[in-house]
Amino acid sequence: MKFFKYVAFMFVLTMPFMASAHVSVTHTLPQDKAMLMSSPEQLSLAFSGKVRLAKIVVQDAHKQPIDFDFKPTAAPSSDFSWPLPHLKQGNYTVKWIALGGDGHKMTGEFTFMIHATKHSNKTKMPENGHGNHNH
């Protein structure tokens, strides 16, 4: 009986030290569902923890990929940024795949739209990009 009491005591004692956190996307640029007045100069992704970004694809409305300077690297990071080429008016989707610090595959996507005007690149409807933690 003493043994069980000891185990129960240790169990309760250790509870506060047990906490966990999942990595997720904290910020994207352009922001999800953003409506831009001109082509964005860069593409950025920020995570709440370090991940290894394996893939990121920018597609236009016809699902044609846009070339930009992305190369997968084994070095983990929480912030990623790349310069973008000039993008034409239209809808774009950004899809990414990353390996989380816990070894889980993460996927996500977000969209943005570019208007035909030549004014400043102010955005509307700012929201964070979607992210999934796949198991």
């Binding site: 290894r52 394996a54 893939k55 690297t73 084994a74 390996l99 816990d102 070894g103």
Partner: peptide, 22 residues
Amino acid sequence: IAESGFMGMLDRPMLEIVWYSV
């Protein structure tokens, strides 16, 4: 992770990403 069919198993950058991870 590569999501490019079974050839993705031999994709060197993907192999490196996995190998240097947990």
